[in-house]
Amino acid sequence: MRTLITGVDADGKSCVLSQDKLTLDRLAPGFAMGIPFATSTSPPPQRPLGAAPLIDQGIDPGLARWMVVELGPDSETPMHHTDTLDLQTVLSGSVDLMLDDGAHRLTQGDLVVLTGVDHAWRGGPDGCRLSAVLIGTPPPETEAAPR
């Protein structure tokens, strides 16, 4: 199980900041747990400025929405950014997470933390099903102009 955490580089371009294998710690016989990501403030920190169009999820800072998303085979979304911190798990299939630093192939069991950065999705050859928990974030001081 891989965990990708997104952010922006020194030029403000969306990228993968870290990519690690999730380790599960055995806490008791038959019970193990791992923490792929945690916030330290509530609501979560402000998202970075986005250059792609904003998709307003309508979730106030600190509130959450859990949803399941399906992408058909080879389907694509346009590049966009959101006003949320998204915690996503690939339930089935595969998908390419498109960031300014390129495509990142995700497969069943992979985890991704999207910090409101510019991104797009491209479904794999068999499509993809994602579980997504969206947490509203405060807006940045100013929004960037659309590309």
Rank of each mutant, 00 (worst) to 15 (best):
L22V: 11
H80C: 05
V90W: 02
L111A: 00
T77A: 05
V69M: 10
L97C: 08
S18A: 12
S14C: 15
S40W: 04
G127H: 08
P44E: 13
P140K: 14
A145R: 11
S131D: 05
P125E: 14
T6R: 03
T41C: 05
G109Y: 09
S75I: 01
V95Q: 01
A145G: 00
D96W: 09
G7Q: 12
D110F: 05
T137E: 09
M79H: 03
G62V: 01
G136L: 03
L22S: 10
L106G: 08
L106Y: 00
G34D: 07
T82G: 10
G102I: 06
L111R: 11
Q108A: 14
A38R: 06
E143S: 10
P140T: 07
A145H: 04
M33H: 09
I59S: 15
D101K: 05
L54A: 08
P139I: 02
R26L: 12
G109I: 03
G102S: 08
G12C: 06
R122M: 12
S18I: 01
V133A: 14
K21W: 05
I135Y: 05
S42G: 07
S14P: 04
L91I: 09
Q108W: 03
L91D: 02
P53M: 06
M33Q: 13
L71N: 07
M1C: 14
P61F: 07
G12I: 02
G127T: 07
G127Q: 12
P53N: 11
V8R: 08
G58Y: 07
L130Y: 01
T77S: 10
L134G: 01
R105P: 08
D126K: 09
R105A: 09
A32E: 12
D126E: 14
S75C: 10
V69F: 10
D101I: 08
L4T: 03
F37T: 06
I35G: 08
L24T: 04
A144Y: 01
P29G: 04
